[in-house]
């Protein structure tokens, strides 16, 4: 079946939209997708949304497909079918890129980075995280309708970084031609009373940003270089005093990188020098003082 045949009827109908909202648990992905669903409903369309409640843990991946059209069959958007991708986190924006319509899809992403723990698995000192390396400038250049903004920074400037999702919603609102009051009413339904003022301000800020971006006066934000998770790079060398080692096996079993072993004479030897991160656990726990870790800065050499 070709991609054309798979396309759900009605998606192409004027006014209908496939919107994919993605982010990280706790950012408010579901909140803005509910607002979008309500806007679709007000326009008299049939609306399907998935997911409707956040099942991810705080910090996990969250996505929400919002589809509205005269007739919607599937609640999910197929790859390459999203009219808009709204991403609340930078790596998530890249992960879902293939859902965007190749030529006409609108890409709106917060440049905020939330580095997950599994991106920091390399425990070598000076190791760079495994976080996505693409910069906003590279991505914006490749997509025809791409907008990358520091929504978290804008929201923080307004008083609460948690309103970043509403900044992005405001940013997308210029594409829908819906009166401002409708957006505000929809927002008020899902936002606690105390947070209404900040969310209205955030929405307006996003809208203003997008209007300026359409006029071509917004600059693509730059991001700081990916940081090194564990200080400057160092080279670690293990000095093992075979005459003092009694082969108790503590260093072998407790090395987090499993880079030590006992040889035939029951003396500790370093079997994987490249895996050693210089954490010094072996040096500290050696009851016979047989191991000394020497560290030299790599940059100095």
């Amino acid at each position: 079946m070709s991609a054309e045949a798979k396309r759900a009827p009605g998606a192409e109908t004027a006014g209908g939209r496939n919107i994919l909202v993605v982010g990280v648990g706790g950012q408010g992905v579901i909140m803005i997708s509910k607002v979008l669903a309500l806007i679709g409903q007000r326009r008299g369309f049939e609306v399907k949304q998935s997911e409707v409640h956040g099942m991810a843990k705080r910090g996990g991946i969250v996505f929400s497909h919002v589809r509205f059209a005269p007739k919607v069959w599937s609640p999910t958007i197929a790859k390459g079918e999203a009219d808009a991708l709204i991403a609340l986190e930078w790596a998530e924006s890249l992960r879902w890129l293939d859902f965007l319509k190749p030529e006409t899809g609108v890409f709106i992403a917060d440049t905020r980075r939330i580095v997950p723990p599994f991106a920091c698995l390399n425990r070598q000192q000076g190791a760079v995280t495994a976080y996505a390396k693409a910069t906003p400038a590279e991505v914006v250049e490749r997509i025809s309708n791409a907008y990358a903004l520091d929504a978290s920074g804008i929201a923080a400037g307004l008083g609460d970084a948690r309103a970043a999702n509403t900044v992005l919603l405001g940013c997308y609102s210029v594409a829908l031609d819906e009166p401002l009051e409708h957006w505000r009413e929809a927002l008020d339904l899902f936002v606690p009373k105390a947070a209404r003022a900040i969310n209205h301000a955030a929405f307006d800020a996003g809208r203003t940003w997008a209007e300026a971006a359409r006029a071509g006066t917004q600059e693509v934000p730059t991001m700081p270089a990916l940081f090194s998770a564990r200080g400057p790079a160092v080279k670690s060398e293990l000095e093992i005093n075979a005459a003092w080692c009694k082969g108790c096996d503590i260093c072998v079993k407790l090395c987090p990188e499993r880079c030590l072993a006992l040889d035939k004479k029951q003396i500790a030897v370093l079997t994987k020098p490249d895996a050693c991160t210089g954490c010094r656990v072996c040096e500290w726990l050696c009851p016979d003082f047989a191991i000394t870790v020497h560290q030299t800065a790599v940059g100095a050499a």
């Binding site: 009851p287 016979d288 003082f289």
Partner: peptide
């Protein structure tokens, strides 16, 4: 640690894996 040890007495008399060496460190 070798700066603080009487090196002529090393290796020490304690059994393999004895926690006293770690405590001394």
């Amino acid at each position: 640690i070798r700066e603080y040890l009487r090196l002529e007495l090393m290796p020490h008399f304690m059994c393999p894996g004895c926690g006293h060496g770690i405590a001394l460190r």
